[in-house]
Amino acid sequence: MAEVFGLYKQRASFIHGLHPLTKLAVSGFFLLAGLSLPGMWSTYLLVIFGLLPLAFLSRLLLELVSRTGRIVLPFMISVFLIQGILWSGGTPLIEVGPISFKQEGVQFAIASSGRILIVVGSFLWFALTTRPDQLMLALAERGLPSSLSYLIVSSIQIVPRFQARANTILDAQRSRGLEIAGSIFQRARAVLPLVAPLILSSLIDVEERALAIEVRGFNYPGPKTSYREIAQAAWEPMLQRFLLLAMAGTLILSIVLRLVS
């Protein structure tokens, strides 16, 4: 199930049972704090004392670490290399022949990698623990139009099928002799036989899908109901409000600190 529905992973955890907006507020707080708090190590402290314990409580610690690592590590390595070596001026930290690692470059790389880490980590934690349909239901309850929710969620869910179809068309065309390797010119020429059937078949699908959801009353006038009840503990709205205030406070604090320094 989880593979089909994007990133969401079902686990019997307390975190999974939280209201989607509570998790959205937590994730938003990490994101904002990570991007706005000054200091080289503040984001790492947020990850170690905030995000990782939450991932552990969600029973997704390894999943989160592995997925975040796969995205962030290549970026971190390149930032360290580029900033460490190419930082103009600065204090040499390590010297290997003509190449020297500058202290200021490494400090910059630590700070920017931390920011990427908290952005990717908090988004992934949210996506891994939140059912997309429940998020949309929660947003619809807060006034988001249902057609917009449908558009967002169905687009995300249908991407894997779209990729599968593209692969099928690719295989079919290759079996008929289409060369997709070679020079840039050859590759560009191979795109047309893939794109045309992909777009045409997708347009046919869109029409059939429109009929199918119409039959199921998608545009039926009047209020809609929900099969699922999104549970929300009595303290959750309070926590959501607190996190919104904390976000505002963090933002103000970071502006003040920047002005003072």
Binding site: S149, R209, Y220, R228, E229
Partner: peptide
């Protein structure tokens, strides 16, 4: 495949999609 709404995580939620649109009580 084109009849699946694409917004629901489980089969039972998918089957309930039409009823939700009609405003049927839970």
């Amino acid at each position: 495949f084109n009849q699946i709404s694409g917004t629901k995580v489980t089969v039972q939620d998918e089957i309930a999609f039409g009823l939700e649109n009609l405003g049927i009580p839970r």
